[in-house]
């Protein structure tokens, strides 16, 4: 962890009215890591994603990406810096086909301007070919080639989750934030997803921060896990350490995940 820090949250707090959704969170993620972020419902996990991607600005604290501050930047500018995400409550461009969904995210790497597009210049044609090729590759990797021309709204649920990932990858991120990618998947699909996440991490040299409720997935692929409860980080460590941490067990008490924690150990 001492080496190459990609993302650093430094005492970050965000307050909504009287409620501190995230309180004094300090977290470092090294380049190439796959870190899990877990916690009971309403613990503030997605809020952390919203902070890192610029949907919310922190009330207090600093966020550094590759050593440069990103707090207060607009989401699209942060995406251009190299952080993209998926959404827990799937937010695809419903009326567009899969290919377009991916192309839209590749948009920031287009070099052709508006005039090029309207006049169909050579530069535009080259650009468009690149974007389409890259979109095709990503759909291939995610196993979505057969659905390329299907509107996103008409995809089966599992494919929608995959399209979310394909779309996030099209922005060529260095840090990928996955918000409950296994939600609603059956055990087989979850296993496939685990392999897929590991695969894209290596293929694209990604750093991944993963929110996941499915403990099997988290414990299976993350080497380091941070636990949030009521917006506060209550534990951080290897899956082995987390599983036996009394504060984590207490936080999860009453939730069914408790059983999973035990079973996993």
């Amino acid at each position: 962890m001492t080496g190459d820090v990609l993302l650093e949250l430094d005492h970050v707090t965000i307050q909504f009215g009287g409620l501190k959704a995230v309180a004094d969170l300090t977290l470092q993620i090294g380049r190439g890591e796959l870190v899990g972020l877990i916690g009971p419902n309403g613990a503030g996990k997605t809020t952390v994603f919203n902070l890192v991607t610029g949907v919310y600005a922190p009330t207090v604290g600093r966020m550094l990406f590759e050593g440069r501050p990103i707090q207060g930047m607009k989401p699209h500018a942060i995406a251009a810096r190299g952080i993209t995400r998926t959404f827990q409550n799937i937010r695809l461009f419903a009326s567009r086909c899969c290919r377009d969904n991916v192309c839209i995210a590749a948009h920031q790497h287009a070099r052709a301007g508006l005039a090029d597009a309207i006049l169909r210049t050579r530069r535009f044609e080259d650009d468009e070919r690149d974007i389409q090729r890259r979109a095709g590759e990503l759909l291939e990797i995610l196993g979505l080639s057969a659905w390329a021309d299907t509107p996103a709204a008409e995809l089966p649920y599992g494919q929608q989750r995959r399209l979310e990932i394909a779309r996030a990858l099209a922005g060529r991120p260095r840090l990928l934030l996955l918000d409950e990618p296994a939600a609603g998947l059956n055990p087989q699909e979850s296993d496939q997803l685990m392999r897929l996440i590991e695969d894209i991490r290596q293929r694209f040299h990604l750093t991944i921060l993963l929110i996941e409720h499915d403990m099997r997935v988290v414990m299976g692929i993350c080497r380091r896990i941070a636990v949030l409860d009521y917006g506060v980080k209550i534990a951080e460590g290897t899956p082995g350490q987390i599983r036996t941490d009394p504060r984590v067990i207490e936080a999860y008490l009453g939730e069914e995940v408790h059983a999973d924690l035990g079973a996993g150990g």
């Binding site: 989401p75 699209h76 995400r85 937010r91 839209i104 995210a105 920031q108 779309r167 099209a170």
Partner: peptide, 9 residues
């Protein structure tokens, strides 16, 4: 929201 998060200004 998704458009903005994926880099569309």
């Amino acid at each position: 929201v998704a458009a903005e998060a994926l880099g569309v200004d």
